[in-house]
């Protein structure tokens, strides 16, 4: 981890690192058994399963980055995004018809949002695609609510104490998309250039948008 602001000394032995989720072979067996039964009984076909996986893998954080970049340059679009993120995503060509309600949360100089699903792994898949493995790990889910600044620091994200950290636990029917702050030094940039600064983690809230060198 990078850490020029990491000025306190402690060991990291007292908690699990935020990393890949632990393998659960029993769930893999259960999934296979249910899938094979559904196919054998003609409820779904193997091609349906394949197509769904292909569709899931076709969605990437690049779509979210385009939406954020549009919001940075177009205040009317940003207003629509913050009011109804699904409708705004549809405007940008994202199919959200099978998605739960999506809510966009704007980071400001006063408040930084970070999203977690403590109960499972709720994530705005229609816009960002499949969540990273660490998002589903029990370490991230448990620790983000208990020590968010420490978790952010492990991601290399250091925020002044004056900035409110708001942990958003995605417990029910909402999926949350963080709109990071537009970095300084990008005045006059077009949407494509801006979108390249918007990484996946900045839309989860574990990172900021990239500041141009």
């Amino acid at each position: 981890m990078s850490g020029n602001h990491h000025d306190h000394l402690h060991t990291h032995d007292d908690h699990a690192p935020v990393g890949a989720t632990e393998p659960r072979p029993e769930y893999a067996r259960l999934e296979r058994a249910v899938r094979e039964l559904l196919i054998a009984k003609g409820v779904i076909t193997a091609d349906d399963v394949r197509k769904q996986i292909e569709l899931m893998d076709s969605r990437t954080p690049a779509m979210g980055a385009k939406i954020v970049a549009r919001a940075w340059v177009d205040p009317a679009f940003k207003t629509r995004l913050l009011k109804d993120a699904k409708a705004a995503a549809e405007e940008m060509g994202v199919d959200t018809s099978n998605s739960a309600t999506v809510v966009a949360l704007e980071n400001t100089p006063a408040r930084h949002h970070v999203v977690v699903c403590t109960l499972c792994s709720c994530y705005p898949k229609a816009i960002l695609g499949v969540p990273p493995a660490w998002y589903k790990s029990s370490a991230y889910r448990a620790r983000t609510v208990k020590e968010p600044r420490k978790v952010l620091a492990e991601f290399g994200t250091f925020l002044p104490e004056g900035v409110e950290i708001r942990v958003v636990d995605s417990t029910a029917d909402m999926r949350y998309l963080v709109v990071p702050m537009r970095p300084a030094g990008t005045e006059g940039w077009n949407e494509d250039r801006l979108a390249a600064l918007v990484g996946r983690d900045s839309m989860i809230g574990t990172a900021l948008a990239t500041t141009p060198a």
């Binding site: 609510v145 409110e164 942990v167 636990d169 029910a172």
Partner: peptide, 13 residues
Amino acid sequence: TNARNETLTADLY
């Protein structure tokens, strides 16, 4: 816990 200026939201029925 050291939780100055930290909030948490949950969606509750």
